[in-house]
Design a protein around this nucleic acid. Structure first.
Lengths: 366, 366
DNA sequence: TTGTAAGCGTTATCAG
DNA sequence: CTGATAACGCTTACAA
């Protein structure tokens, strides 16, 4: 039983040097057609499977893969429609280049061990240990949120050449590349919409993928400070200065958690007139729970979400639309071409009013 | 501007040998607590991000990742509910071990370059070039279909120690590890069900991820020979010996293709009394198209699918249930523990009769 | 067009 | 508990 054949085995068998064999795989045009054929043939014969991935990337410094760093468990990535859609977009971009996609749980260890050339962060703050691990490795990072001070809503696609070498922008690092929407503005859109409808008492459903509060618990505004994570909430508050806002932690970001949280919210004494979930999945779960109780979303209680995922339309959910798949695709493109200058892309959003929101009931407590 | 720090940089800075630094990361218990702390500290200080992935795996032979090889494009993986669910299962298994998940398009190149320790194939035949590439690399492979001669339906979970060293089993290779359902039996379940309902003329909707026929085309039975891919069809035929079976290629496996194919099938002169789609997505799309035309599934035409994905219940789709997520989880487990002996797991299936199938209309052509 | 030689960063082995 | 040494399999200037 021999050991697995290497480039050397093949070279010896053919009677050429290892570099020639290497070239046969990496620069086929540098060889005479004859030789190339002969090499490929004996390689086949010997059962040489082609250049070893580890050896190759140790030498070349490239891994041929990009990573997506998720907030939650891996399996979460496959249960959240938003994440799934986003990943589909990334795939579209990387596929033609024979680059593979590595999905990563939010663990610094996993990030360290991953064989990747660049990494994108999905809903995970830049302060998270796993994100830091990526930065420490010196990997090009592409974010999916606006950095800190919710930037000026200049317009779509603004790859300003204006580099900020001093990094005076935020606390610490200069904001890198990203593809994002203006989440704060999205919050404002919903806020203005609800205000216009006369809502004064609204509850916000937050997911607690980031460690603020725990499921079902009420969350005080002072805990919601990271603008990178809670831009939507901040925008909402901004647009409804007079309203009585409360926040409830819904657990993690899923349909089931949306359903479960409904119980807590609907039974409250001072039931709000509107509920805003930080994501559509949560909102859809909430709506489902309402219907099961015989409540009519938009009449008995207004519900709004964010993202406009598949299913939002069917459910009549008022939400803020964003081009999820495009976002993924653009992220994929940035991942593949990690230029020196950070690139920044701002995607357009739209308020989509459907039947789940309606005028606030008149103040007379039913 | 220095080059990126390595294990050596750290070793020199601390004044120890590289092996000690390596141990600090791989066998922390082999060091005095003091030294370990000192090493970690200077590593931090120097910005050493921990052992480099490429170097480490070149030396150790492990990549710390497993791959999933898909039939279709990468983005397909994220649009097919079956695949998504399966991947969620795999994730659950691998996540606790800090192993990452690499999703691979069906390209031999991608398989060769991938940094993985084992690979699972999802709906891709073992004869496919990409699968062969994996075999050539000597990667442990876990399949998700029964090898060739649809095995004896012994029961659930039958990790027979009975190795077949001579490989007399099939044409060529001995069947390796797999986690599968008896797809042929699944076909029989549907077939018997339809036969019992009096159906004689049925059309099968096939996806053409494997290169038999092209979208919308009628497919002759002689082309449908690979039992690994079309076990469901074979089982169906087996259970309906008297019936007039036709097969239609639906393009790829998606809701949209199911919808589109409906047009072709419903307009036919000799419209069948029942349609069996090889997957639920296809069937759900088909049903949707029927409803849009004012046709009532189960009354005007019976429709059945396979897999019992999320949404099948809501649509009232008759189908064969299989534990998709468990399948993924089990595959993940086999991937992590690639023993020498192939392990084989057969998962249980159930016919789930819902409203989309009903008695065949009486022979009088309406 | 092909060969030579020098590592890439790590870890296993074995000795101290 | 720590250190020296030798690979691991490959790529890439550069030289022939």
């Amino acid at each position: 039983m021999n050991r697995r054949p290497t480039i050397k085995t093949v070279a010896e068998a053919v009677g050429v040097s290892t570099s020639t064999v290497s070239n046969a795989y990496n620069r086929p045009d540098q060889l005479s057609a004859k030789l190339l054929a002969r090499i490929k043939a004996t390689a086949e014969e010997l059962g040489y499977p082609g250049p070893d991935a580890a050896g190759r990337s140790l030498r070349s410094g490239r891994a041929g893969a990009v990573g997506i760093l998720l907030t939650n468990t891996l399996s979460y990535a496959f249960s959240d429609p938003y994440a799934v859609r986003f990943l589909a977009g990334v795939s579209q971009a990387v596929e033609p280049t024979d680059t593979s996609l590595v999905v990563l749980p939010p663990s610094p260890e996993a990030v360290q061990r991953a064989h990747i050339d660049a990494i994108a962060t999905l809903c995970i703050p830049s302060s998270h240990p796993a994100t830091r691990a990526a930065a420490a490795r010196g990997l090009p990072i592409v974010g999916t949120t606006l950095p800190d001070q919710a930037a000026d809503p200049t317009g779509t696609d603004d790859p300003t050449g204006t580099d900020d070498p001093t990094g005076t922008a935020g606390p610490g690092r200069a904001p890198g590349s990203y593809v994002a929407i203006d989440d704060r503005e999205a919050g404002r859109l919903i806020g203005r919409h609800l205000a216009r409808l006369g809502h004064h008492r609204v509850t916000v459903l937050l997911d607690t993928s980031t460690p603020y509060g725990s499921a079902g618990t009420e969350v005080g505004p002072e805990e919601i400070l990271d603008p990178e994570c809670w831009a939507r909430w901040l925008g909402l508050r901004e647009a409804m200065p007079g309203a009585e806002l409360s926040a409830v932690s819904a657990g993690h970001n899923s349909y089931e958690c949306g359903q479960a949280t409904a119980a807590a919210v609907l039974d409250r004494q001072d039931r709000p007139t509107a509920v805003v979930a930080v994501s559509d999945v949560l909102a859809l779960g909430f709506i489902d729970a309402m219907r099961r109780r015989g409540l009519d979303p938009g009449r008995d209680l207004s519900v709004a979400g964010f993202d406009d995922i598949t299913g939002a339309e069917a459910a009549g959910l008022t939400t803020v639309h964003q081009p999820i798949e495009d976002k993924g695709r653009l992220v994929g493109e940035l991942l593949l071409a990690p230029g020196a200058e950070p690139r920044r892309v701002l995607l357009p959003i739209d308020l989509v009013v459907r039947s789940s929101t309606g005028p606030a009931p008149t103040p007379s407590r039913s």
